[in-house]
Computed example of a mutant assay.
Amino acid sequence: MNARDRDGEGRARSARPRDGLGRPLAYGAAGVERQPEGVVRSPAETVREAQRLLDAGMPFHAHEVFEDAWKSGPGVSAPLWRGLAQLAVGLTHAARGNAVGGARLLRRGADGIEGLRAEPYGIDVPGLVRWARELAGRVEAGGPAVDAAREAPRLNGGGAGRSRGSGSGSG
């Protein structure tokens, strides 16, 4: 492999496979398929795809979906998508065991979306802010290891860190 992998347009982009939390694996190892970059989705498609990835325990990949929305959508929506991307990266770091980085990004994301209207695109902003701050506090306090799928927030309401199979999305 070259000293620096490049994409088709010559930009630096690692060709190493990644695991579900976005950690690079050895060349040739089986990894999780990466999210394509630069995909333009409707807000509803963005929420649906990000929720699917969060539920699967892949917040790093959900962050890439939010990043696409942030960079391709109208400027007025950028703070929402940027804040959600930060929440997803915060969950990623927390699940990787990086308590300091995880808590910092969870709080930064919560701060970034806190003042937005309550439910842009059906997203439960107040619920996500509560979820992020609560998780940041637990991570900093040295709580149990974070399971990204178990702790995944419900973007459209109903809480977070829910128990599987409840059907209600509360927890």
Rank of each mutant, 00 (worst) to 15 (best):
W131Q: 05
R18D: 00
R104N: 12
T92M: 04
R48F: 13
M58C: 11
R6Y: 08
A50N: 13
H63W: 09
P17S: 06
P126W: 04
G102Y: 01
G31L: 11
V146C: 04
G90E: 02
G75D: 15
L84W: 03
R41I: 06
L54G: 00
G157K: 10
G10A: 03
T92F: 02
D7K: 00
P59W: 01
D5A: 11
P120Q: 06
V65R: 08
L135Q: 03
S170F: 12
G112M: 10
G142K: 10
V89T: 04
G8Q: 13
G165S: 09
A148D: 02
A152S: 14
R18A: 08
P17Y: 06
S72K: 09
T46F: 05
M58A: 13
D124H: 07
E9V: 11
G22R: 03
R34K: 07
R107L: 13
G171I: 02
R164I: 06
R133L: 05
P36K: 15
R11N: 14
E64M: 03
E45A: 08
G109V: 01
S72G: 10
G167M: 09
A95G: 01
R150G: 15
R18K: 04
P24D: 12
A148F: 05
D68W: 06
S42C: 11
G38R: 00
G127P: 03
S77M: 09
H93Q: 06
R18I: 15
G10D: 09
R52L: 15
A99N: 05
P43K: 12
F60K: 00
L87N: 04
A15C: 06
G112V: 08
R107S: 13
S166A: 14
E49C: 08
